[in-house]
Design a protein around this nucleic acid. Sequence first.
DNA 1: GGGAGCGATGTAAGCGCTTACACCCCGTCA
DNA 2: TGACGGGGTGTAAGCGCTTACATCGCTCCC
Lengths: 369, 369
Amino acid sequence: MATTPRQRPERAARPSTPSTASMPDPSTPGATPAAGATIYSVAERAGVSIATVSRVLQGRAVVSEATRQKVLEAVDALHYVPLGAARSLAVRHHEAYGLVIPELTGPYYSELLMGFETRAAELGQSVILLLANGKSDVPSAVGHLATRVDGIAVLGSAAVPPTLTRALRGRKPVVVIAGSSSDVPGGERVELVAAENVHSSEQLTAHVLDHGRSRLLYVGDPAPAPDISERYAGFVAAHTARGLDPAEPVRVPFLESEGVAVADRILSGELEADALVCANDELALSIMTRLQDAGRDVPGDIAVVGWDDVMTSRYVRPGMTTVRQPVHELGVLAAERLHQRVDGAAPLPAPVVLPTEVVLRGSCGCATP
Amino acid sequence: MATTPRQRPERAARPSTPSTASMPDPSTPGATPAAGATIYSVAERAGVSIATVSRVLQGRAVVSEATRQKVLEAVDALHYVPLGAARSLAVRHHEAYGLVIPELTGPYYSELLMGFETRAAELGQSVILLLANGKSDVPSAVGHLATRVDGIAVLGSAAVPPTLTRALRGRKPVVVIAGSSSDVPGGERVELVAAENVHSSEQLTAHVLDHGRSRLLYVGDPAPAPDISERYAGFVAAHTARGLDPAEPVRVPFLESEGVAVADRILSGELEADALVCANDELALSIMTRLQDAGRDVPGDIAVVGWDDVMTSRYVRPGMTTVRQPVHELGVLAAERLHQRVDGAAPLPAPVVLPTEVVLRGSCGCATP
DNA sequence: GGGAGCGATGTAAGCGCTTACACCCCGTCA
DNA sequence: TGACGGGGTGTAAGCGCTTACATCGCTCCC
């Protein structure tokens, strides 16, 4: 065998830890080295330089078939697993995108995440997930995330955007999902993707009005979430269009328990309505069930509609009338935009808005079950 | 200003790209550098060495308050975002764990993921998510994941385990969630965490039998998923314990549409039963709804029970009798174990099994709504 | 008054990759 | 027959951090 030049001539001998006799000597031939193999050990074993090993592994440079085989064998024999961090450092890309969402209850976030992950994976990017709820210091968590990704997608409702830009310092491309432009203060490197809200909410509200209902209540708090306030705007618009006076929203958090409370306020007469337009399906479902359990007829006595089209909305009777959002596509789009941006594309000047679809079932008064 | 020694004396001048005039000169004072600030620029601006900057940022070494302030100011002024990859390389830890699950439909995976992410975040670790379904080459995806994490948690049903160990080459700690020991071939660095299945399934089945039912069917395919086959084992055990003959499982995939098909086979008389023990709630719910829509009485004519206790199971009437699993805890536990293992702990020799809880509602024949 | 001791900081050696560039060896062609 | 070209490989310079170790002033105490 030709004298292989030391691959890393100056490399000091590993600081010899006063090794106990029980530690197997990594250099023992045949023994699996306790610590991971590196590109150096692979190169040495294959009798080539580290550059060649890298070329084989990256697969984007010409290497003779014989050499390739030698390298692959060495990789296999040594159980070589490359160190991603070293590659990232060298190529100056993390090859990962961050996704920040509040939590993962209900199908909305899951769908979004699946879309995002799927597209990211296709693009060869890993996904690092950050759940904002329950974190005491979200900005610093996002800051830490920024440390390890090439771009970040954030849900508008994640309560991050205001502080986000500061945390990121405009350093990385950011895509805000289902947020409003008001979330983008400096806004240079931030862009928006969202599902349509105002129009479909107006449409849904108009539909309920068409059923002859006149005292509609909007249930859910528009304040914190931009998409909810857009939906309320649609609710208002539908009223205004017919010269009606929209009621103030019934501001409650999006919790099943809150829905029950709202239903109780209706049952007690505190709240009066013949139709409820709810900010999401969870709310709508818990209200409807409570009303029914108390003997009220839905939609006979009171109509109830929701938003999101969760699975349960198909199963309850009457079926819940609601609005389906292209959530999966939203996730795909976010990943896609991030990729473009990392590739050097300029941020889109205007938000991308995906269309939604009103799903009519029985709870609004339609004849469908 | 004292002559600051060049921080990186030998550092060659950046290979001057034949820069077009349109590119702003990064060195222009006041201008935000186009490329990210590094620890060097921060050190230079603060008039200290990079070591000091690092110390301030890591916060675990004594630095005088004055110096700390100078550094923090520089960090702020330059919008410095550290490069995680460089840190990872230096500290020789990715500070991230991988989680491999099939997909994200239903609350099961979401809960698991939330538990995992929560605990991982507490431990200062990022979570890289990999959805196995839809990936054409899962082993290579897992291999790539292994490149960037210190340990991996995999769902037993993710169809990964058989190939997983090979992909990882025993290089990283692995925790298999809700898998069976048979998933662990070489098994050296792999350990298992799971929810109890056999006993609670036996208990649930016995409960249904106690309602006076005698012709029970098990719906769902035990073959691919270890947890499902354990549940079927419990079904069998309950029968055997009373000298009854358990029916062969009705092997169908876990899809709503399949549930509808099963219901149709019952309605047509092809399948005969007075109680259905379903592998999960999705199946149970779609079957029950279909039967009801066709005029059958549940539980009068036929009882239906599920597994998982999804949200819908609380909303349907009758409520779905089911089994609640400590899914969140499973996620927490997986992250916890991974952390221990990365810390040097030995793999647990025996699987950790968390208890589950039978939730009785009306669909089994109980008086509860 | 001159160490010893210590807090604060700087120096420099890596961490394990990627890749520009140099080089070598042959086959070709003028 | 020698210049040329090009495929295949090696050399070495980073990528941006962390951290062991060296250094530098001080204060403190004998």
